[in-house]
């Protein structure tokens, strides 16, 4: 396995700039998620790394080998890049065993290797003779992964691998895939539009927007310190209110909140889990509950402040208010503020 380094990658289709000088380093053995909304260019980025699409500018290196630069491009089949597309894309005319062993030279397509790969992908051995359409979505995904891992590639690329699975399966499939990748010691690049998937699975998340990488960070750093309000709202819901920062305190309609920011007008980001609902008397800020969504252990409460600002709070369902009820609001912990001028 080897690290993947992209620098200055650009690509246009006609007048549309799909990738705009993208830099990204995927450390050896790590799982990096490229997270962005549809149409942000993340799939194109993946296809450039795989060698299916040529870039217009910039270089791609696998380890210390440059595989893509303006002058040269190594053919896809020579890059040693494993590829797991959406829905797995298993070869429908081949059974599971033939799918998994497809990329191995004839001499190396042994029963032992097949057994190893099935084990690696946590698949029961009796699926080997089945046809792809006889497998569940999660199984298909793992066969696709085993197929990609079989020739021991330098890096594995996963293109929205869980998007076709239903919500319950998605989480377990994701964890299984991560386990398999860890086990194989693979360097992996995963493209997804699902922030939960990216945060829960990846060692490193690259957020893309309109053809640019706007932030690369570990999931926790990304969540705690999003680079701008757009990123912040994209990574987990958040209430953004305007305020004035004076000496480490932001004066907002949600009260005076602790921040680390320069003085001046700012937009202040408050995560739903920071908002605690209390008795009216306990807080200086009051709100009216407009909607309550009950999730068992947790509850999400939508409120309007007196000035009409909408706020979202998330907390234990032990304290579930009624719709229309007036409650007090407290914001816990430090918040993130972005100077107004930066917008």
């Amino acid at each position: 396995m080897s690290a993947v380094t992209l620098s200055g990658i650009s690509k246009s289709y006609g007048a549309q700039r799909v990738l705009d000088s993208v830099d990204l380093h995927v450390p050896d053995g790590s799982l990096t998620a490229v997270l962005g909304p549809s149409g942000c260019g993340k799939t194109t980025l993946l296809r450039i790394v795989a060698g299916f699409v040529r870039s217009e500018a910039g270089t791609v290196s696998l380890g210390d080998r440059v595989v893509e630069s303006p002058g040269t491009a190594l053919a896809a089949e020579k890059r040693g890049v494993g590829y797991v597309p959406q829905e797995g894309a298993l070869f429908p005319h081949l059974d599971v065993a033939a799918n998994i062993l497809y990329g191995l030279p004839r001499g190396r397509r042994s029963k032992t290797r097949l057994a190893e790969l099935l084990d690696l992908a946590e698949l029961p051995h009796d699926v080997a003779r089945r046809s792809p359409h006889e497998l569940s979505g999660g199984q298909q995904q793992r066969v696709a992964l085993a197929r990609a891992l079989a020739p021991a590639p330098r890096v594995i690329l996963l293109d929205e691998p869980f998007s076709s699975l239903d919500a319950g399966l998605r989480v377990s499939a994701g964890r299984a895939v991560r386990r398999v990748l860890r086990h194989a010691g693979a360097t992996a690049l995963l493209v997804t539009h699902d922030q939960g998937e990216a945060l829960s699975l990846a060692d490193q998340v690259a957020v893309m927007r309109a053809g640019r990488v706007v932030q690369v960070d570990s999931p926790t750093a990304l969540y705690a310190h999003p680079v701008d309000p757009e990123t912040a709202t994209f990574i987990g819901g958040a209430t953004v209110v305007s305020g004035q920062v004076r000496g480490g305190v932001a004066l907002t309609s949600l009260g005076d909140l602790t921040v680390r920011a320069e003085d001046g007008p700012a937009r202040v980001l408050v995560r739903p889990e920071q908002v605690r609902l209390v008795e009216l008397a306990e807080a200086g800020v009051h709100g009216t509950v407009t909607e309550v969504s009950f999730y068992g252990a947790q509850v999400v409460v939508h409120l309007d402040l007196a000035d009409g600002t909408p706020v979202t709070a998330r907390g234990s369902s032990a304290h579930t208010p009624e719709s229309g009820e007036k409650v007090g609001l407290l914001v816990e912990g430090a918040v993130v503020a972005y100077p107004e001028s930066s917008q």
């Binding site: 296809r47 060698g51 890059r79 590829y83 070869f91 429908p92 990609a148 020739p151 590639p153």
Partner: peptide, 17 residues
Amino acid sequence: EQAPPVLEDVSRSLGQS
């Protein structure tokens, strides 16, 4: 239509010409 291009991409990525 039974042979979507993604299958060819996968095959290429698996080292096949």
